[in-house]
Design a protein around this nucleic acid. Sequence first.
DNA 1: CGACATATTGAACGGGCTCAACGTGGGTGG
DNA 2: CCACCCACGTTGAGCCCGTTCAATATGTCG
Lengths: 206, 206
Amino acid sequence: MREGDQPTVINLFLDGWGRRYKDLPDGRRQVVSFFVPGDLCDLNIFILRQMDHSIGALTPLTIAEIPRSAFEEIIDRHPRITQALWWEALVAAATQREWTMSLGQRNAAERIGHLLCELFLRLRTVGLTNGTSCPFPLTQSVLGEATGLSLVHVNRTLQDYRAAGMIVLKQRELTIPDLRALMEASMFDANYLHLDHEGRHFDANI
Amino acid sequence: MREGDQPTVINLFLDGWGRRYKDLPDGRRQVVSFFVPGDLCDLNIFILRQMDHSIGALTPLTIAEIPRSAFEEIIDRHPRITQALWWEALVAAATQREWTMSLGQRNAAERIGHLLCELFLRLRTVGLTNGTSCPFPLTQSVLGEATGLSLVHVNRTLQDYRAAGMIVLKQRELTIPDLRALMEASMFDANYLHLDHEGRHFDANI
DNA sequence: CGACATATTGAACGGGCTCAACGTGGGTGG
DNA sequence: CCACCCACGTTGAGCCCGTTCAATATGTCG
């Protein structure tokens, strides 16, 4: 989906990863967020006329396409789901603020460490981690586009973390032996993910 | 209002400027957004338990404090205002994405030029510009916190724009003689502000 | 086995930072 | 009303983190 499009459905990621990104006229590209299973995108089609960014797949995807009309019916009849949609939108905004913080203030090692912590925690929340490991389909090039760093420097920073024994990353799988240590190194505070939200009780049947 | 607080009212800026910011444990600070008259803050108190960032004044303020209960009543009875709240939340998120783009990909001059364009347009939307001029209470230090640049480099970048005749900035007033030129120089595309939104028709009486 | 994406490494460059002074202007108290 | 003060702005010089350019592995898929 490209900047300028006028989407008509809301997509729910069932399996696979995606990313939001923006391009500048001269070709520079910034990834502004990642999608993992469980994430919604394009909530804004209810209100905003057209896409101000692009969305692309990072792996083969399984997606649920929810027509706008179905969503409107849900919103009318299920206030708790509506509340969940607000949660989704507000946490996405909070995450975007945290990325702003990363790009503005954190150095290369902190940015990458912080991103790894975020993705690991988000995957764990939806049950996609396996102990201290999780799938990790992002290439170093994509990591660079997300952290505002050159591909070369991403590589060197990952090497440093590997040499320090803080991460194992190969074959598209990430292992973080000591998550707490990585969180401390990158000054990661999970509060912005709002995992203590009421969502524990979000249930369409209540 | 500080990170960790649990606010109980929603604030509407009637007059004066404010900012959202986040601090790191070692003192680094990132301003993640600005508030100008007409902006709402703390919409998230409906859903999220506690603040994941801080909010502070930049000038003396006139604020309307709207209790949560009053808001809930409005939401029940005025679907178009509810839609306006969604617009507010989604545009705030879109703006945050654009800041992510700026910090990740734009250089110093582009970041500052882009921010000046954004603030000028937002002020114009609420009728607070005067021809090519607008009030501009931000100090160079605050500009640095928002753009991820050092105060020194902000100063030099502003000098460059002044020398090029692209801005006049003194006595807390900004003049942009040729807005289109500044927008081009900083690769500013206003689409993310969604000024073509339905808000033109937002009216509590409809 | 060939081809193309991805990862790795080296070396030189540069945008923006840090450190350190020095102006400047508006508010305040004596 | 003036002298002081403090926040804000300006300028210079050297340095460093991360970039760019350019090769060289490595791996995976048909």
